[in-house]
Design a binder for these strands. Structure first.
Lengths: 201, 201
DNA sequence: CTCCTTGCATACGGTGGCGTGTCTTAGAAG
DNA sequence: CTTCTAAGACACGCCACCGTATGCAAGGAG
């Protein structure tokens, strides 16, 4: 995942910690397979082969393939979107939407489709994604909006439920449904012509 | 599906026409399986069993499972959304968004997820969906917007690319990504507080 | 009434993934 | 140096699905 496990030191102290090199290689293999063949391509055999290990290793750490998928994809999605205070509502929203745009354009974008496509058949993945990624995004957007209200950039009675998802909804829609391009012009247009008029004081 | 095939008359004339009762039963079986188990659950064997027929029948009419899926799902999606002239931009948009909302709430909503989830691995499905459903929706929205511009309800320079997808993007996003409820209050809110201000003259 | 065409269901070999049992090897303790 | 323990690789049986070849039944032509 993120904290890169500072290789040298950690290995020196304990010979092999719980989630270490091997586990990381497995997650990487899963990610590769998702990108190449979608969630359906993530079989235990394929993962084992790709990670240069064997199936018993996988079954030792994860109950089944669904659990392995969950624990690989959800953390990835968590890291995709920046959450920084740029000092203005416009700047914050631009940063966030550009984060989504970059995510969709990157190979990791396939993770988004994989999760969405797998959720209906995997309630646990759905719960993990919604309680993890979505809930966290909502929280982050709530903070962004609260800061903007404090600054007087956004009207205090703006409907949070809608304001927080309006921008990313268009990007997700293009990415998943229409396949239309997501340009930076589109992002700035959304912010300046839709989000700010809608939320503006 | 929708038009109930007026059983008596058709059977009387030609004993068994090309796409008739059996073919319809097969499509129904595919739909059931998609709803119950997602696109991955649509195996040739399961379809044959569910439709009370056998695999050779399926292979006689469709080259492979992807073709069967395409020819079942795409027409369904085409029938989902109304395309009527209500006489006003607000009325048109309310009708369209309510059409999407009803579609998502119905069992057929699963078809939406199935298509989105399967597109990355099935270029032909993606092409069929985008050249069929999406292109047709774009055209319909273009007509709706043109009428609205003629009536003076919408500014002539409104960006079509964004205006036509803005409303449904929020609904798709809730349906696929967040799982948040899609209420009629939300629909009217989107129309009155977002679409009309954005596109208004 | 018989033949023949048409079209379906049953049955088959082949493949690939699942989940697990067994053996081997490498590191820790005595 | 020897023994013990733990972890991983190999291999197996199982099952579901694929795609096709074969045998059977029903309706039209002679």
């Amino acid at each position: 995942m993120v904290e890169a496990s500072d290789p040298g030191a950690a290995v020196a102290t304990t010979r092999r910690r719980r989630g270490s090199v091997l586990e990381q290689a497995i997650h990487a293999a899963v990610l590769d397979l998702v990108i190449e063949q979608g969630a359906a391509g993530v079989t235990m055999e394929a993962v084992a082969a790709r990670a240069a290990t064997s199936k018993p290793v996988l079954y030792r750490r994860w109950a089944d393939r669904a659990a392995l998928l969950r624990e690989t994809l959800v953390p990835l999605a968590m890291d995709a979107i920046p959450h920084t205070d740029t000092g203005s509502y416009r700047g914050d929203m631009l940063a966030i939407l550009r984060g989504w745009a970059d995510f969709f354009a990157s190979p990791h974008g396939a993770v988004g489709v994989a999760i969405v496509g797998a959720m209906p058949q995997d309630p646990e993945l759905a719960a993990a994604f919604r309680d993890g990624v979505i809930a966290w995004r909502k929280e982050a957007m709530a903070e962004t909006l609260t800061r903007a209200i404090d600054r007087g950039e956004v009207r205090p009675d703006v409907p949070f439920e809608v304001a927080r998802e309006l921008g990313q909804a268009v990007l997700w829609h293009r990415f998943l449904v229409t396949g239309d391009p997501i340009t930076d012009d589109l992002v700035t247009h959304i912010v300046d012509e839709i989000l700010i008029p809608y939320a503006g004081a």
